[in-house]
Each structure stands twice: as structure tokens, then as C-alpha cells.
Design a protein around this nucleic acid. Structure first.
Lengths: 332, 332
DNA sequence: CTGAAAGCGCTAACAC
DNA sequence: GTGTTAGCGCTTTCAG
């Protein structure tokens, strides 16, 4: 079985304390001889210190918890990759969990993370009410929020510039001559970023006296999303050629699948644009005009802020925006 | 700060042992009164047991380590999602790490996982030589391998039916009338699954006397992959219209980006097909014929086998294949 | 420069 | 039914 610090100490003829100093790099006042002897024994035994034990005393598990709304999402992957970029430098590991788009499940996994004694948490929150997360502050665990707001703001929040990116895209749509706009989204009341994306369109539409219709669906996979709502709208408005804006990549994909099935083409039959963090939209049809929010960068920034807090110098609880970028293509 | 089992014990006027029994569900011989009292105190204090401490004695951290070759990959996301489906049921958590396609880095993170005392590991291995992983068996940690072989086979290995799927696809290509086949891949010697995918084509090509050219590139992102090799081939073979097969989704995307930039169309100028685990290929061009290896299922199966081992009844070290499926579309 | 000893929060015999 | 006690493997004063 795994050797312990005691095994190392005995084989090297020193005390556990000395080995511990060695492991933690406190060679300042240690004879080179002892150091080398310990090094040899560690290598020979293949000793790997047990972090569970060390955490008990040192109060540092070197674990960072990450909770995303839905694991099977490109956004999540890229976010996690960004976080990993910085935890790696710190020699830490990430504990990932998916909330399955469910508040109760999110709460459950947060408790698991607390139980594991994570040094900090990065959360894409299900709830807009930050009081829901009081228990993690009570546990004394630093947390930073990503992608969505949770208010009153108690944590640094890193998100993309949803509202302004959305406005810019809406202006583009209108400039392209569309007289009808459809926003295809998951329920916007529930999540601040969705709401901001919708509001960007709604506000610009109002400025230009262009009607903006909100079509809400539950489920965001191609299979679950109820894309036929768009078909219903089309039937109800014969002769109209609207621009459809989808608030996330899965919905964009769902909409495009549906169009393909219906034999609808863009921009001939309708315009389409939406969020896409993975650039595949460039390849669909004539190329879909889309917004990229750079989740990897969001992950990096979030992790950097988290470490500030973990190291005792938390930044003020403000919203940090990573600019989303617009890729103009030929679907409008 | 976080309350401990001692705090709970004192407030509830019982011993730590009783609280511990409560926490672990040993109510068999416990008065309902004490049980309820403890429950109340636990809720009131917001007590969450410290798993680090419990692990020290119980030898179970409830942590499953997952090491993938590259975190920023759809395959990884879906694999992790599948693993999470089953660890969640067990009340466990997953510790994910990316090896950055580098053997040394993989070794480093494996050591970190061992240090964290994970109950088991799921690995998409960088090395085909299983001796590289002797140190994990020495540490007594159960492991299952996914996606690629590492031999001599010491661990259950869950992968997709690479060779047969690849043969089927090759037959399809040839039946479509192509007289030249190009396999665009990352170095095939290094990874068994790539090799199997290549061999499937090579063998079928030989059977039909159709030349199969292997074009190898390093880096698999659209930016890094050297797609111009295909262009060079085209230049060297004027008048030919080959079918290109890419051995993973990133390379498929890279090839399609390049074709788009070159103004090349499929199937007009060349045929194209490849691996795609996320169905976006359905939307590209006329729809790209592709192979889906169902990574989520692979993850689930792998986790199930891992738990068998963790629970003391390891399955024999065989290769388990999850059938890959072929989506015929219009790119050939 | 190194060692002894106490203890982190929890579990698991073994008592009673 | 419940309490006592002895650690799990490590870190960290405090001595020397």
C-alpha cells in the first residue's frame, strides 16, 4: 500500500518533522546531506504525500470546486479549460460538478464541495438571489460567480458583455432590413444573462419601432427545444421574413436542425443569428452570424479573482465583463 | 468557521461517536429521540462533515479522478458527462485533469490525483505502454482506460469500435466511386485509436486496390493543423477528386475551415468524412458523413467498471467496445 | 539543523 | 443505545 511520511522518516533515519519540512520546501536550515537522503528515499519508495492528511492541519486542500449549470455544454468545457489553465499553475486540481439546470441539485453539489473542503468555488449560478448561497459564505469558502448575476452582489462576477453585444447584433439585424425579430430563448426571467440578451434586442427594436417577439422554450438540446414555435409564428405571419436570434449555442443548433428538416434556408426564408462559442456556426449554411463570448477567458479571469480571495485579499464584489465578439457572416 | 462533529455532539448532548453513526446512517440501534435531536442540531448549525478527515480513517475519499488527453475537446466533455452520470448516483465527485497531450504532464497530474487519494481513476492514456502506469497500480488505485489501448492490457479498457467503424466508412467511400483516399490524422503511431482508424481505411483500400495516402499533422485545432498538406496533394494530382477522412472532430473542422477558405466544395471538389461526436457536421455544407462514437456512453460504462473495481470485484482486463455509428449524409 | 509531541475532524472497535 | 478511546497521515510549535 502507499508509503506514509513515517515510512520515509524511518528509512531515511530522520523524524517525520524533517521529512515534512523537506516536502514543503523548507530547506533553509537543512543539511544538504539530509535533504539528499530524503530525496533518495522518497524516490525509491515512490512516496506521494497524502493531501487529505495534510489538509486537515494546513487548512488547504488544493482543490477548487467548479459548478456549471450543465456539464454537456461547450460553454462549460471552455470555461473549465480556462479555469484549469490557472489552477494548474498553482498546482491545484479542479472538482467539477454539473447542476443539471436544477437549483436543488446545485445545492446538493455545493454541499458536497464544501464537504470536500475546497479552497474556493467558481459557480455559474442557478439562482439570481444570492441569499441562496449564504451557506457557502458561512462555511468561509471564497466564491466567484460566472456568466450570470446573483444579487445583491456578494461575489466578484465575471461574465460577457451580454447587453451591449446583444444591442450591437440587433442593430446589425435591423440595418440588414429585417422588419420582424424573433428571440428564441429559454425562459428569460430565470437567468440574468438570457434577460440581458433579450433586453438588448427588445430595447433596440423599440428604438427603431421594430417588433421583437420573445419565444420561450424549455430544454435546450436539439431534441428538447420546441423549435416549432418559430414555425407557428411563420404560419401566423404569411409573407413575413423575420430574423431569428437564439440566446445560446444549443438553441442555435436546434433551430438550424429544424430549418434543415423543414427545408428552410437562410437568409432566403429567414435570417438567423445567435450565440456560438465554438465557431462551428461558421460552417453551417452560408455561415451564421454569431456572438462568441470567449468562455475560456472568462474561466481564467474568474480563477484569478478566486485566487485573490483564497490568498486573503478578495477584490470588491463587482461585475467584470469580458467583451463578446461578433462574427459577421451571411445568414442575415 | 465550519462547525465540526464535536460542536454537533456538544450542542446535542451526545458523543461524537453517536453523531458519526447518525451521519453514516447507522440508526439501527439509536433512539428516535437522539436521531431527531442530532438532525435538528445538524440543520441548525449547517454542519457539513469534513470528508478529508473521514477519508483518513475510512480510506474512501469519494473522489474519482478523470484524466483526458485534452480538456478542450467535445469528446472530453461528453466523456466526463457520462462519468458524472454514474458518480453522481454514488454520491461521489470527479476530479478532472487534462494532460495537454503530453506524457510528462499526464504523469504529473496522475501523481496529484494519487496525492488526493482518489478512490479510482479513469484515464485516456497518452502512452501505449501500460508499464508507464505501474505507479498507479503500486499505489493500489483502481483504474480503467478509455478510448485508447495501453498494452500489455492491465486494465479494463472501454473504447469505440474504431476499426470496424472505420472499415464500414471506407467501404462506403469506395462504393461512392472514389479512386483516391486521403487519411488526415495526427501521428498514428502514437495512439492506438488513430492507428485503428487508419488501418480500417488502409486495409479496405488494399482489398479494393484503391490507394490510401496518410497525411499526418501535429496539432489538431483549426489554427494548428497543417491542412495545406491536402492542398499540396491536390496540386500534385491534378484532375483527381479524392475522399478525405479525418480521424477526429477537430481535424474535420480544420479541414472544412480550410476548404471554405479555399473555396472548395464538397462533394464537388472532393469528398469528406470523419469523426464528429457532437452532430454539428450535419449542418456543415451539404451535411458531412460522419462517425459518432458516443463518448457519453463510453464514460458511463467506464465508470461502471471502475466502481466494480473500487468495490473489490474488478472485472478482467479486457477491451470493451461501444459501437460507433455512421451517419450517412451528402459529402461523398 | 533536527526531534518530540500535540492535534486537525472523523471513524471504529470495544466497553458499558 | 451510547460513550471512550485510539488512531488515520500530516503540520507545526517548541525544545534542544
Amino acid at each position: 500500500m502507499r508509503p506514509t511520511i513515517d515510512d520515509v522518516a524511518k528509512t531515511a533515519n530522520v523524524s517525520k518533522a524533517t521529512v515534512s519540512r523537506y516536502l514543503n520546501g523548507h530547506f533553509e536550515r537543512m543539511s544538504a546531506a539530509t535533504r539528499d537522503r530524503i530525496a533518495a528515499v522518497v524516490a525509491q519508495l515512490g512516496f506521494v504525500p497524502n493531501r487529505q492528511a495534510s489538509a486537515l492541519k494546513s487548512r488547504r486542500t488544493h482543490l477548487i470546486g467548479v459548478v456549471v449549470a450543465d456539464l454537456a455544454n461547450i460553454y462549460s468545457t471552455l470555461l473549465i479549460t480556462g479555469i484549469n489553465d490557472v489552477t494548474k499553475e498553482a498546482g491545484d486540481q479542479i472538482l467539477v460538478a454539473g447542476a443539471g439546470n436544477d437549483l436543488a441539485e446545485e445545492k446538493r453539489v455545493l454541499h458536497l464541495l464544501i464537504g470536500q473542503g475546497v479552497d474556493g468555488i467558481i459557480l455559474q449560478p442557478m439562482s439570481q438571489d444570492s441569499h441562496q448561497y449564504d451557506f457557502v459564505r458561512l462555511a468561509g469558502i471564497p466564491m466567484v460567480i460566472v456568466d450570470r448575476d446573483s444579487l445583491p452582489r456578494r461575489h466578484v462576477t465575471v461574465a460577457s458583455s451580454d447587453y451591449s453585444a446583444s444591442r450591437t447584433l440587433a442593430e446589425t439585424v435591423i440595418r440588414a432590413g429585417y422588419k420582424d425579430i424573433i428571440v428564441f430563448a429559454n425562459p428569460v426571467q430565470l437567468v440574468s444573462s438570457r434577460m440581458l440578451r433579450y433586453r438588448g434586442f427588445a430595447d433596440v427594436g423599440q428604438d427603431h419601432h421594430i417588433p421583437v417577439t420573445l419565444l420561450e422554450t424549455h430544454g435546450d438540446s436539439a431534441a428538447e427545444a420546441d423549435v416549432s414555435m418559430i414555425g407557428a409564428w411563420l404560419t401566423a405571419h404569411p409573407g413575413h421574413r423575420p430574423a431569428v436570434f437564439t440566446t445560446n449555442g444549443r438553441l442555435l443548433m436546434a433551430a438550424l436542425f429544424w430549418m434543415q428538416d423543414q427545408g428552410l434556408q437562410t437568409p432566403r426564408d429567414l435570417g438567423i443569428c445567435g450565440y456560438d462559442d465554438w465557431d462551428w456556426a461558421r460552417l453551417a449554411g452560408p455561415g451564421i452570424t454569431s456572438v462568441n463570448q470567449h468562455p475560456q477567458q472568462i474561466g481564467q479571469k474568474a480563477a484569478e479573482f478566486l485566487y485573490q480571495a483564497v490568498n486573503g485579499t478578495p477584490a470588491p464584489a463587482t461585475r467584470i465583463e469580458i467583451p463578446a465578439t461578433l462574427d459577421l457572416r451571411h445568414s442575415l
